[in-house]
Simulated assay, not measured.
Amino acid sequence: MFITPPSNIASWSEGRLTEGYLQNRLGILQHALLHGSQVPTAETLTEAIRYIRKESGVALTPAQFSRLLDLYPYAKSKVADYGWGDTEVEEMVLDVVANAFLGTRWPLGVDDCDVNAFVARLRFAAEKALPLLD
């Protein structure tokens, strides 16, 4: 769930927008519009939940993760369309969990973030929030 800071976009020329950034954004929008009604399979949800637990220690049920995905329609359509095993989908599901419970994205290597501390905070927040998803 990479978000380009508004200050970056405001500083770009229109030429910079047309050097690939805008085409990428339009492709993402088109994909979302074409696949917005798709629903992930039970197998895909199970694999995603396994991955989330492995990476973060957050234990979601399929129903809880489905409810989270309902809040992130583009992620839901991407997971449904691509299925499991795509690295972009793996990153996206971690971003969904981080955003839903902490209002942020999953840390990237360039973030200079103590990932262990981040994961501990994420598990703490998830523990408080999971009852809301039942």
Score class of each variant (00 low, 15 high):
Pro131Arg: 09
Gln64Pro: 09
Gly20Gln: 05
Phe118Arg: 04
Val115Gly: 00
Ala98Pro: 04
Thr46Leu: 12
Leu29Gly: 03
Gly85Tyr: 01
Gly57Leu: 00
Tyr21Val: 06
Gln64Met: 00
Leu69Gly: 00
Ala126Leu: 00
Phe118Ser: 00
Pro62Asp: 10
Glu91Gln: 12
Leu122Arg: 06
Ser77Leu: 09
Gln23Ala: 15
Gln38Asp: 15
Pro6Trp: 08
Trp106Gln: 09
Ser56Thr: 15
Ala98Met: 05
Leu108Cys: 01
Gln38Cys: 02
Glu90Pro: 11
Gly36Ile: 04
Ser77Gln: 08
Arg123Gln: 15
Ala59Ser: 00
Leu71Val: 10
Ile28Thr: 07
Glu14Cys: 02
Pro5Phe: 02
Trp84Arg: 08
Ala48Trp: 07
Asp114Thr: 11
Leu45Lys: 10
Phe101Thr: 13
Gly103Gln: 03
Gly103Glu: 08
Leu29Ile: 11
Ala98Tyr: 06
Trp84Ile: 06
Gln30Cys: 02
Ile28Trp: 12
Thr4Asn: 11
Val96Lys: 07
Leu33Ile: 04
Leu130His: 11
Leu69Gln: 12
Ala120Ile: 12
His35Leu: 07
Val93Ile: 01
Val119Ala: 14
Pro107Tyr: 04
Leu34Ile: 07
Gly20Asn: 02
Leu108Thr: 08
Ser56Gln: 03
Lys128Ser: 12
Asp114Phe: 11
Thr61Phe: 05
Arg50Gly: 14
Leu132Asn: 02
Asp81Gly: 10
Asp134Ile: 09
Thr4Arg: 12
Lys54Ile: 07
Gly103Cys: 10
Glu91Leu: 07
Ser13Ile: 03
Thr41His: 07
Phe65Tyr: 08
Lys78Asp: 14
Ala117Met: 09
Thr44Tyr: 14
Thr87Lys: 12
Gly85Glu: 10
Thr4Gly: 01
Ala129Gly: 13
Thr4Ala: 08
Leu122Lys: 03
Ala120His: 15
Leu68Gln: 03
Thr46Glu: 15
Ile52Cys: 12
Gly15Ser: 10
Asp112Trp: 09
